[in-house]
Protein backbone atom coordinates (compact mmCIF):
# COMPACT_ATOMS: atom_id res chain seq x y z
CA UNK A 1 0.00 0.00 0.00
CA UNK A 2 1.46 3.32 -1.00
CA UNK A 3 2.36 5.97 1.55
CA UNK A 4 0.48 8.64 -0.35
CA UNK A 5 -2.74 6.76 0.05
CA UNK A 6 -2.13 6.31 3.74
CA UNK A 7 -2.07 9.96 4.63
CA UNK A 8 -5.48 11.04 3.50
CA UNK A 9 -7.47 11.28 6.72
CA UNK A 10 -11.00 9.93 6.75
CA UNK A 11 -11.38 10.93 10.43
CA UNK A 12 -9.82 13.86 12.19
CA UNK A 13 -10.50 14.21 15.91
CA UNK A 14 -9.83 17.47 17.70
CA UNK A 15 -9.90 18.06 21.46
CA UNK A 16 -12.37 15.29 21.86
CA UNK A 17 -13.63 14.40 25.31
CA UNK A 18 -16.31 12.13 26.64
CA UNK A 19 -17.64 12.53 30.14
CA UNK A 20 -19.88 10.08 31.96
CA UNK A 21 -21.29 11.59 35.10
CA UNK A 22 -18.28 13.11 36.81
CA UNK A 23 -15.70 11.05 34.98
CA UNK A 24 -13.87 12.05 31.88
CA UNK A 25 -13.25 8.70 30.23
CA UNK A 26 -11.87 10.05 26.97
CA UNK A 27 -9.61 12.99 26.30
CA UNK A 28 -8.00 13.02 22.88
CA UNK A 29 -6.16 16.11 21.75
CA UNK A 30 -5.81 14.93 18.19
CA UNK A 31 -6.16 11.74 16.22
CA UNK A 32 -6.28 11.04 12.53
CA UNK A 33 -7.47 7.84 10.91
CA UNK A 34 -6.21 7.44 7.38
CA UNK A 35 -8.37 6.26 4.54
CA UNK A 36 -7.65 2.63 3.78
CA UNK A 37 -5.44 1.89 6.75
CA UNK A 38 -5.67 -0.62 9.55
CA UNK A 39 -5.26 1.26 12.79
CA UNK A 40 -5.01 -0.73 16.00
CA UNK A 41 -6.07 0.74 19.33
CA UNK A 42 -4.44 -1.01 22.24
CA UNK A 43 -4.62 -0.32 25.93
CA UNK A 44 -5.69 -1.84 29.19
CA UNK A 45 -9.30 -2.55 29.99
CA UNK A 46 -11.19 0.60 30.92
CA UNK A 47 -8.86 2.90 29.01
CA UNK A 48 -11.68 4.13 26.76
CA UNK A 49 -11.19 2.08 23.61
CA UNK A 50 -14.82 1.04 23.24
CA UNK A 51 -15.99 4.54 24.04
CA UNK A 52 -13.80 5.91 21.28
CA UNK A 53 -15.29 3.42 18.82
CA UNK A 54 -18.81 4.43 19.81
CA UNK A 55 -17.93 8.03 19.04
CA UNK A 56 -16.36 7.07 15.70
CA UNK A 57 -19.56 5.15 14.95
CA UNK A 58 -21.65 8.23 15.88
CA UNK A 59 -23.60 6.15 18.36
CA UNK A 60 -22.93 8.81 20.99
CA UNK A 61 -21.95 12.45 20.65
CA UNK A 62 -18.73 13.72 22.21
CA UNK A 63 -18.91 15.88 25.34
CA UNK A 64 -16.52 18.40 23.81
CA UNK A 65 -14.56 18.75 20.61
CA UNK A 66 -15.21 17.72 17.04
CA UNK A 67 -15.04 14.65 14.89
CA UNK A 68 -14.32 15.43 11.28
CA UNK A 69 -15.51 12.63 9.02
CA UNK A 70 -14.91 12.74 5.29
CA UNK A 71 -14.23 16.45 5.45
CA UNK A 72 -17.31 17.44 7.45
CA UNK A 73 -17.03 18.49 11.09
CA UNK A 74 -19.45 17.18 13.68
CA UNK A 75 -19.50 18.85 17.06
CA UNK A 76 -21.28 18.15 20.29
CA UNK A 77 -24.75 18.79 18.94
CA UNK A 78 -24.31 17.83 15.32
CA UNK A 79 -24.64 14.25 14.31
CA UNK A 80 -24.13 13.22 10.72
CA UNK A 81 -26.98 12.51 8.39
CA UNK A 82 -28.19 8.94 8.26
CA UNK A 83 -26.46 8.22 4.95
CA UNK A 84 -23.13 9.35 6.38
CA UNK A 85 -23.54 7.43 9.60
CA UNK A 86 -24.36 4.37 7.53
CA UNK A 87 -20.89 4.37 6.02
CA UNK A 88 -19.49 3.25 9.36
CA UNK A 89 -20.27 -0.04 11.03
CA UNK A 90 -18.92 -1.86 14.04
CA UNK A 91 -18.44 -5.49 14.98
CA UNK A 92 -18.39 -6.11 18.71
CA UNK A 93 -16.80 -8.67 20.96
CA UNK A 94 -20.15 -10.27 21.71
CA UNK A 95 -22.11 -10.57 18.48
CA UNK A 96 -25.83 -10.02 19.01
CA UNK A 97 -27.46 -11.90 16.18
CA UNK A 98 -31.15 -11.85 15.41
CA UNK A 99 -33.19 -14.95 16.09
CA UNK A 100 -33.48 -15.63 12.36
CA UNK A 101 -31.50 -17.51 9.76
CA UNK A 102 -27.87 -16.79 9.03
CA UNK A 103 -28.96 -15.41 5.65
CA UNK A 104 -31.48 -13.00 7.17
CA UNK A 105 -28.88 -11.81 9.62
CA UNK A 106 -26.42 -11.10 6.85
CA UNK A 107 -29.13 -9.28 4.88
CA UNK A 108 -30.28 -7.12 7.80
CA UNK A 109 -28.14 -4.07 7.11
CA UNK A 110 -29.12 -4.03 3.45
CA UNK A 111 -32.82 -4.33 4.31
CA UNK A 112 -32.49 -1.38 6.70
CA UNK A 113 -31.27 0.61 3.75
CA UNK A 114 -34.34 -0.35 1.78
CA UNK A 115 -32.41 -2.46 -0.71
CA UNK A 116 -34.56 -5.09 -2.31
CA UNK A 117 -32.15 -7.00 -4.45
CA UNK A 118 -29.89 -8.22 -1.68
CA UNK A 119 -29.24 -11.73 -2.95
CA UNK A 120 -25.88 -11.38 -4.61
CA UNK A 121 -24.51 -9.09 -1.91
CA UNK A 122 -25.55 -11.40 0.91
CA UNK A 123 -24.19 -14.37 -0.97
CA UNK A 124 -20.89 -12.67 -1.44
CA UNK A 125 -20.63 -11.56 2.19
CA UNK A 126 -21.34 -15.09 3.40
CA UNK A 127 -18.75 -16.44 1.00
CA UNK A 128 -16.22 -13.93 2.29
CA UNK A 129 -16.60 -15.32 5.80
CA UNK A 130 -16.81 -18.93 4.62
CA UNK A 131 -20.38 -19.56 5.73
CA UNK A 132 -22.28 -20.08 2.46
CA UNK A 133 -23.05 -23.59 3.63
CA UNK A 134 -24.86 -22.46 6.74
CA UNK A 135 -27.10 -19.82 5.12
CA UNK A 136 -30.35 -21.45 6.20
CA UNK A 137 -29.27 -22.39 9.70
CA UNK A 138 -30.76 -20.42 12.58
CA UNK A 139 -28.25 -18.00 14.01
CA UNK A 140 -28.80 -19.05 17.61
CA UNK A 141 -27.53 -22.53 16.89
CA UNK A 142 -24.09 -21.39 15.74
CA UNK A 143 -20.81 -21.77 17.57
CA UNK A 144 -19.08 -18.66 18.91
CA UNK A 145 -16.68 -18.43 15.99
CA UNK A 146 -19.41 -18.92 13.42
CA UNK A 147 -21.61 -16.33 15.12
CA UNK A 148 -18.81 -13.79 15.01
CA UNK A 149 -18.29 -14.50 11.32
CA UNK A 150 -22.00 -13.91 10.70
CA UNK A 151 -21.65 -10.59 12.53
CA UNK A 152 -18.75 -9.81 10.24
CA UNK A 153 -20.77 -10.82 7.18
CA UNK A 154 -23.71 -8.58 8.06
CA UNK A 155 -21.28 -5.72 8.55
CA UNK A 156 -19.38 -6.14 5.30
CA UNK A 157 -22.53 -6.86 3.28
CA UNK A 158 -23.29 -3.15 3.38
CA UNK A 159 -19.87 -2.20 1.98
CA UNK A 160 -18.92 0.23 4.72
CA UNK A 161 -16.24 2.85 4.25
CA UNK A 162 -15.09 2.19 7.79
CA UNK A 163 -15.25 -1.01 9.76
CA UNK A 164 -14.75 -0.70 13.50
CA UNK A 165 -13.77 -3.88 15.31
CA UNK A 166 -14.07 -4.02 19.09
CA UNK A 167 -12.05 -6.99 20.31
CA UNK A 168 -13.62 -9.16 17.63
CA UNK A 169 -11.59 -12.25 18.44
CA UNK A 170 -11.48 -12.19 22.22
CA UNK A 171 -12.77 -15.52 23.55
CA UNK A 172 -12.42 -17.27 20.19
CA UNK A 173 -10.40 -20.35 19.38
CA UNK A 174 -7.15 -19.92 17.42
CA UNK A 175 -8.73 -21.35 14.27
CA UNK A 176 -11.47 -18.74 14.21
CA UNK A 177 -9.05 -16.00 15.23
CA UNK A 178 -6.95 -16.89 12.19
CA UNK A 179 -10.00 -16.93 9.93
CA UNK A 180 -11.26 -13.58 11.10
CA UNK A 181 -7.85 -11.96 10.85
CA UNK A 182 -7.61 -13.23 7.29
CA UNK A 183 -11.06 -11.95 6.41
CA UNK A 184 -10.48 -8.43 7.65
CA UNK A 185 -7.04 -8.27 6.11
CA UNK A 186 -8.46 -9.24 2.73
CA UNK A 187 -11.26 -6.75 3.13
CA UNK A 188 -8.75 -3.99 3.74
CA UNK A 189 -6.46 -5.02 0.90
CA UNK A 190 -9.06 -5.78 -1.75
CA UNK A 191 -11.79 -3.28 -1.00
CA UNK A 192 -9.78 -0.59 0.71
CA UNK A 193 -12.02 -0.61 3.77
CA UNK A 194 -10.65 1.52 6.58
CA UNK A 195 -10.30 -0.56 9.72
CA UNK A 196 -10.02 0.53 13.31
CA UNK A 197 -9.26 -2.49 15.43
CA UNK A 198 -9.50 -2.49 19.19
CA UNK A 199 -7.57 -5.33 20.72
CA UNK A 200 -5.75 -6.02 23.90
CA UNK A 201 -3.80 -8.66 22.10
CA UNK A 202 -0.63 -6.86 21.05
CA UNK A 203 0.38 -9.74 18.80
CA UNK A 204 -2.81 -9.29 16.84
CA UNK A 205 -2.13 -5.56 16.55
CA UNK A 206 1.31 -6.37 15.25
CA UNK A 207 0.03 -8.91 12.74
CA UNK A 208 -2.71 -6.72 11.27
CA UNK A 209 -2.12 -3.04 11.78
CA UNK A 210 -0.10 -0.49 9.89
CA UNK A 211 -0.32 1.97 12.75
CA UNK A 212 -0.91 1.49 16.45
CA UNK A 213 -2.19 3.86 19.13
CA UNK A 214 -1.80 3.19 22.83
CA UNK A 215 -4.65 4.42 24.98
CA UNK A 216 -4.38 4.83 28.74
CA UNK A 217 -6.95 6.51 30.97
CA UNK A 218 -8.68 7.97 27.96
CA UNK A 219 -5.57 9.54 26.50
CA UNK A 220 -3.40 8.58 23.59
CA UNK A 221 0.01 8.02 25.13
CA UNK A 222 1.78 7.00 21.98
CA UNK A 223 1.00 6.43 18.36
CA UNK A 224 3.15 5.29 15.49
CA UNK A 225 3.92 2.96 12.62
CA UNK A 226 3.61 -0.62 13.76
CA UNK A 227 7.35 -1.41 13.54
CA UNK A 228 8.43 1.68 15.38
CA UNK A 229 5.67 1.31 17.96
CA UNK A 230 6.70 -2.16 18.97
CA UNK A 231 10.45 -2.02 18.41
CA UNK A 232 11.21 1.46 19.65
CA UNK A 233 8.41 2.73 21.86
CA UNK A 234 9.10 6.20 23.21
CA UNK A 235 7.04 6.23 26.36
CA UNK A 236 7.89 4.13 29.42
CA UNK A 237 4.22 3.26 29.85
CA UNK A 238 4.03 1.96 26.29
CA UNK A 239 7.08 -0.19 26.94
CA UNK A 240 5.53 -1.57 30.10
CA UNK A 241 2.31 -2.35 28.27
CA UNK A 242 4.06 -4.08 25.40
CA UNK A 243 6.14 -6.14 27.80
CA UNK A 244 2.93 -7.22 29.47
CA UNK A 245 3.85 -5.60 32.74
CA UNK A 246 0.77 -3.47 32.87
CA UNK A 247 -2.00 -5.03 34.85
CA UNK A 248 -5.25 -5.26 32.95
Amino acid sequence: MSEARLSDPIYRLKNLTKVYGERRVLNIATLEVYRGEILALVGPSGSGKSTLLRLLNFLEPPSEGVIEFEGVEYGVNQSPKLEKRRQVVAVFQRPMLLNRSVWDNAAYGLRLRGEHDTRSQVQRALAQVGLEGLAQQRAHTLSGGEAQRVALARAIAIHPQVLLLDEPTANLDPYNVGLIEGIVQRLNREQGTTLVLVTHNIFQARRLAQRVAFLLDGQIIEMGEVGQFFDAPQDARTRAFIRGEMIY
Partner: peptide, 20 residues
Protein backbone atom coordinates in the same frame (compact mmCIF):
# COMPACT_ATOMS: atom_id res chain seq x y z
CA UNK B 1 -29.42 -3.76 25.43
CA UNK B 2 -26.30 -4.54 23.40
CA UNK B 3 -28.58 -5.67 20.59
CA UNK B 4 -30.04 -2.20 20.12
CA UNK B 5 -26.56 -0.71 20.02
CA UNK B 6 -25.46 -3.18 17.37
CA UNK B 7 -28.58 -2.54 15.28
CA UNK B 8 -27.92 1.19 15.39
CA UNK B 9 -24.35 0.52 14.40
CA UNK B 10 -25.58 -1.44 11.40
CA UNK B 11 -27.41 1.69 10.29
CA UNK B 12 -30.83 1.29 11.88
CA UNK B 13 -32.78 4.42 12.68
CA UNK B 14 -34.05 4.47 16.29
CA UNK B 15 -37.43 3.47 14.95
CA UNK B 16 -36.08 0.57 12.90
CA UNK B 17 -34.10 -0.60 15.93
CA UNK B 18 -37.22 -0.50 18.11
CA UNK B 19 -39.19 -2.56 15.59
CA UNK B 20 -36.40 -5.15 15.40
Amino acid sequence: PQLRQQLLSLGATPRQAAVT
